[in-house]
Design a protein around this nucleic acid. Sequence first.
RNA 1: GGCCCGUUCGUCUAGGGGUUAGGACAUCUCCCUUUCACGGAGGAAACACGAGUUCGAUUCUCGUACGGGCUACCA
Length: 518
Amino acid sequence: MQQNLFYAAKNKNTICPQPHRATTHGRCAHSIIRLAVCKKNGGDFLLRIEDTDQNRFVPGAEQYIIDALHWCGITIDEGVSVGGTHAPYRQSERKEVYRSYAMQLVASGNAYYAFDTAEQLEQQRKNAEEKKETFSYGSATRMSLNNSLALTVEEVKELISKNVPYVIRLKVQENETITFTDLIRGEVSFDSNLVDDKVLLKSDGMPTYHLAHIVDDYLMEITHAIRGEEWLPSAPAHILIYRYLGLTAQMPHYAHLPLLLKPDGKGKLSKRDGDRLGFPVFPLEWKDPTTGEVSSGYRENGYYPEAFVNMLAMLGWNPGTEQEIFNMNELIAAFSIDHVHKAGARFDPEKTKWYNTQWMLRQSDEDIAKRIKPMVASLTGITTDDVRLSDSFLTACVALLKPRVQFEKEMPEKGLYLFIEPTEYDQTVISKKWKPEFKDFFKMLSDEFTASNEWNSQIAEQTFKAAAEKNNLKPGEVLQLFRVFVSGQAQGVDLFPMIQLLGKNQVLKRLESALKLV
RNA sequence: GGCCCGUUCGUCUAGGGGUUAGGACAUCUCCCUUUCACGGAGGAAACACGAGUUCGAUUCUCGUACGGGCUACCA
């Protein structure tokens, strides 16, 4: 799943562009921000696949990201799944484009060939580590390494003619202060002596992210490069590449978004945290094709995409008002990058549930009824021609159940007694409340119910109270028993509305069965 | 270690030189409900620390501490 996927947004008016990128889990949050920035500026949202690391190719990951974005309600205007004028959108299919830019940098003296093997560099790092130093391939060390700056022209030619593998590295000028403006953090500056000579083109001919994203952002007319904070340290190198390419004027605005942190402990939220702490980190369930490992998804756990998006958006961003429920359009309308927080946000699974409940409350009973119908059918074995599976019955059940659950998928199980007769009765209530003399009351109640011509919750309640009075009972003494006799449970939906919904015959039947057992 | 970024209730956050420092989640109490929830009311709960600037700093500056990120031919 570590496939690198890139979203970008561009503004077709060529004025204020913007790119965006994201992966799959909590980084959906970044995509939402990207989309908001993009749409707020009237731009197009672009999906680019950054698959330059061939070792990390994961089958299915590309389709997964498209599906996940779709589920979130993010529409892609241009890119790998929909095409566009800047195709191809997979970086692996654009290899030659990057090479030409790398060569341009070599020609202008801003990049060079390096022949050092992975082993040699590893050794350098080890040596440095022993001296408690950090090896950095840069201005301080490049002249003592195996590259076209340190070698003679002849040596370089020979190595190349012998097909010795090489990479192309950026030649960072020394003694400079590199400053740029981050849309979220303001002015940020770095000492160029501390920026390493990043690999631009790998020995397999593929570009690194550093080169590829710049070339593509430029070619695809990206106006805003919005990415996670983990990219901030390499931003100076990116600024330099634009400069050396003579594209400073075309450089997009950069913004580095805060990271999502683990709910407990420390560090950035990772895939493992989800299963460890019992909440999903993936929008959709993901099965790793190589390990077969399955990671749960928000969708499969019963979350609404609106709730997922809403929750993510509110992590690190705020509208500046006290509104907290937003759909995507409202989000875009209210969005301002000024209200993006700088610090990382600790992810809170509890609040996510709350968002889901809020969105559930906003669903119509009819819609929920339609969705839970298959679950009710399989749970109860009731067939579709039964009234209990009718839209009207189900809708009434939903209305009763709705304030009592956080997820609509809890309804069938939690409201099982609405569909099938109880087989067990809450013994705590019975042993605590039941007295043999109550039998007369329930007998009378049955008779009065039988005799009544009309059936609704008010009448049932009046009948109940009247019967209690005639037996010199307070309603409270027998009410809880009545509930248990009808539903089997000590707690549940509003009693008399339930009585109305169940219908006279069903209530009488349940009462009779229960009375036989006490 | 070095570099960069950050730091307001337990958590997500608003605010910004003079405020009773506001909201939300969670938590507690009460009300509603003769159940459980929902809902309503209320409580407890925060400006990391130290200097400086200032009449006055939570807010500006600098340090310190703490947290995070990066330090790959990964993104």
